[in-house]
Design a protein around this nucleic acid. Sequence first.
RNA 1: GCCAGCGUAGCUCAGUGGUAGAGCAGGGGACUCAUAAGCCCUUGGCCGGGGGUUCGAAUCCCUCCGCUGGCACCA
Length: 557
Amino acid sequence: MSETIFIGVAWPYANGPVHVGQLAGCYLPADIFARFHRLKGNAVLMVSGSDQHGTPITVKAETEGVSPAEIVARYHAMFLETWARLGISFDLFTTTGTDNHREVVHRIFLKLLAQDDLYLRTQDGIYDPIARRFLPDRYVEGTCPYCGYSRARGDQCENCGRQLEPTQLIDMRSTLSQGKPEIRPTEHFFLRLSKYNQPLLDWVRRQDHWRPNVRNFTIRYLEEGLIDRAITRDIEWGVPVPVEGFEQKRIYVWFEAVIGYLSASIEWAQRQGEPDLWQRWWSPQAKSYYFIGKDNIPFHTMIWPAMLLAYGGLVLPYDVPANEFMNLERRKISTSQNWAVWVLDVLERYDPDQLRYYVAAVLPETNDGDFSWRDFWRRNNDELVATYGNLVNRVLSFTARNFDARVPDPGQLGEADLGLLRRVDDAFAAVDAAISAVRLRDGLREAMALAQETNRYLDEQAPWNTIKTDREHAGRAIFTAIQAINGLKVLLAPYLPFSSARLHEMLGFADPLEAGGFRPGRVPAGQTLGTLAPLFKKLDESIVEEEQAKLGTADVG
RNA sequence: GCCAGCGUAGCUCAGUGGUAGAGCAGGGGACUCAUAAGCCCUUGGCCGGGGGUUCGAAUCCCUCCGCUGGCACCA
């Protein structure tokens, strides 16, 4: 039975390149999950895009003295290159700057407004009379009331780290004009989140299959009670408010960006030439998964579901498998200090599957994880190369040398051979169960366990001995090992798509790997192997120190 | 400060009431098809400290210590 799987992936701010923390947080997990379901024959739609609004973008633009649009264009192009080179297989990766997105946001905004889920309220704003505009909190500076630091910002004091309200600052001043801001009333639209508190709570309590931390966090949050939040701002960069008299205001990014999941689906359908096709992934039969980092949980388990409930007719998230954070060499990743590993930079020196393997093996699914170059080097050489790559190499090169590069005829299979083939079937069941439950690290572990099992089988059968005395026995062992390798190719395809495709060719297949589906398959006796080459490169230990030396120094990207 | 989570072998982690586990590292061995890879055996842990519940606790409760995250206009 074919399933309909929607995969939404967190929208990265277009203000910097992608680093391994983001990769581990959502992009790689989403891609593994998408590839798995496509192999199973399920209908997958995976979308995301550049989040081009929000304070980080405008701050970056001001720092560089260019327009926000310029920043966005630069990093959006970089994102697309990253996905292409790493094999992150989005069906569509768009931006929040499209006409389509604005239209979809407006449609939702106006419907919610018409049914009173949005309402107007006047609140105090910080107004700069010289610049003649309202100021976001972080554009206000002053003396911290706690520690006396003279350049504390309106949202936080960088000296003592406290969260602040701008009005708490002593001698408040505008960072734009250095003038003294005044308090002025300003009208904003509020989302009636409080109305959906109880429905959300009832809904979340039923989600037994969610990760405990995601579910517990959400339940606690809801038990405290959601407060209505302003969804517009006195800013210039963002989606306009579709109401007369509000031309100077914009819809705030947290309300608008999550709508991207829907608008991207619609854009994708339009590009397919079937404008209504998106509805299949937003109907009640669809299962929608949102891959995000844990910092994004409230928006995907409460605010977006509240908006969906309010709008009506669209399916709520089936699962939100949020990941924890990934540290780097035991320290928290910090892009401003360049304590980060940039994906495009890594791909200059390593194959995409080497990076994909390592990151998949240490995904922070249950706890914060750690990316370390020594561990990268170690796992690449000891696990990827030695256990899997070497298995493929020893079997296929043996076949080339002793069986004229043709898959030998096995004759009658014995108990040991059948045992290994059963083990392949078991591995498919285990990996299927793991990935289906979004336990991707476990899935990889299960697949690698089959590679170990096959190495063990080979040692027991020792075809390099029996080839001298019992050619048929050696052929049977090689045939069986090739079948196991063929299974590994499929099991690992979601994780290591590039090397699985190469292995597929080496095994002598001409059709695409995807055509075979997520099942063991068979390499027929007599099939001629393709051109053989090692699947993975072994790395010299010197890369550990070389890579570590780059951290915290030169600015990349 | 408040709330939550975590603290298990040298390292990375799994294990949520019933005789402590995996991978790697360390030690030993047999083999040689293979990217000196693979395979077998093995050393190693008062499961953060203390207290409690229980016939029985890494697992439940309390407390202390340490680390991490959230505390709303930062997504």
